[in-house]
Computed example of a mutant assay.
Amino acid sequence: MKTALTLAARGLGQVAPNPAVGCVIVREDGEGPRIVGRGWTQPGGRPHAETEALGRARELAKGATAYVSLEPCSHRGKTGPCAEALLDAGIARVVGAVADPNPEVAGRGFAMLQEKGVEVVENVCAAEARHLNAGFFLAMSENRPLVTLKIASSLDGRTATHDGHSQWITGERARARGHLLRATHDAIMVGSATAIVDDPELTCRLPGLGARSPIRIVADGRLRLPLTSKLVRDAMKVPLWLLTLPGGDANRRKAFEECGAVLIDVEPGEDGVMSMRNALAALSEIGVTRLLVEGGARLAASLMRDRLVDRIEWFQAPKLIGGDGYPAIAGLGVKHLDGAPVFELRDVVQLGEDSLARYARGV
């Protein structure tokens, strides 16, 4: 199952709105167990992991065990049910990590297999499987994507000096790891101020992974982004979505659309400002399951206040900028410590002189 989960991770950022699934087919013979087929969900969500693994195992799948990181699907969509494919191949035993939260499956895949005499074992490495596909589970339970907040700061949590100088706070290895994060998310989002000041490309520029650049999203309620920005200039090549308030200037909206940008209207909250909860719901409806947020401080604070950040990837350089620098997160309005957002440290990675602390949402 650990191998199946490792294979599944290859699909992260490439398979939305589908989950990233891995499948390993193991056959017992005179020399002991051996893997005869491996598969993972392919870009675009098809073919599924089970189909890929069965295609590699061929006739050796008969009587074998399939280890699958998510319950095999039981409904007929663009392709036939994976549970049916496993039955047709003669699989004798299926070991599943976790049940599929999709209401169209939700235990039916396991039941279909058991009804036909296949031995089914559930909940093997279930926690790891849920963590891997947290975006898919959140889409089903909360109608929003997984939100990962990426921060690159000094030791005292500053992202730039008082006059706005920020390149480069972290070193080359940390920046490369940040690009890898982009490759494993469906979309990357920044606020309009960050997009205007930094004029970023928001692409994955690791060798060989250029094709895995995520959808670029700018939260821009008033459409302030310059039409001359890098994001707009290459919108025909790498998708650009603008989250904006309804009823903006018609000519400006048309200009963005003619440049290749997609405008998504987001209803405001009670304060008249774009609601991040509504924004995430809109992205989930389109099929985004994993969203990386890279700035700025006000956007991060807005998501934090609404308890919408699930993970934090915090890169820190061994530097101090001081209180007159720009903070990584704007004011949260926390009056008492018991009202502060809580995150649990999962691990720390050393990247040259810099460090990466990885957090997940706590209680």
Rank of each mutant, 00 (worst) to 15 (best):
I169C: 04
Q167S: 06
A106K: 12
T148Q: 11
S166R: 15
E172P: 04
A174P: 06
C125D: 13
A176K: 15
G135K: 08
L181N: 02
E115M: 05
A127Y: 13
A134W: 15
D186H: 04
R130N: 00
V121C: 01
L132T: 02
A183C: 08
K150I: 04
A106C: 09
R177H: 08
V105G: 00
R177A: 09
P145F: 07
R175E: 02
V147Y: 08
V105R: 03
G109R: 11
G107P: 13
M140Q: 15
A139R: 10
V124L: 10
L180W: 14
R177T: 05
T161M: 11
Q167H: 10
T159E: 04
I188W: 05
H165Q: 09
R108I: 06
A160M: 13
I188K: 01
L181T: 00
N102K: 06
L138A: 08
P145I: 10
A126T: 10
V120S: 03
E142S: 05
R130E: 10
H185N: 08
G157M: 15
M189E: 04
L132W: 08
E119P: 03
A174I: 03
I188G: 00
I169M: 12
K116L: 05
S154P: 11
R177K: 12
H131N: 03
A129S: 14
N133A: 03
R177D: 01
A129N: 09
L180S: 02
L132G: 01
R182S: 01
R158C: 06
G107V: 12
E128I: 09
L146Y: 02
A127S: 13
N133V: 14
A187L: 11
G157A: 13
F110D: 06
E142W: 05
G107Q: 11
E115I: 01
T184Q: 11
A106G: 00
G109M: 12
G107Y: 12
W168D: 04
S154E: 10
R175C: 01
G164P: 11
T184C: 04
E115Q: 12
S154A: 13
I169E: 04
G171M: 09
D156T: 02
R130P: 02
F136R: 00
A183K: 10
G178V: 14
W168T: 07
F137N: 02
V121K: 10
N143K: 15
A174K: 00
E119K: 10
A193M: 13
V118S: 01
L113F: 07
L155S: 07
D156M: 05
G107H: 09
G171H: 09
G157P: 14
I169H: 02
R177V: 06
R182C: 02
R175I: 07
A183S: 15
A187T: 05
H185I: 09
V147A: 00
R173F: 03
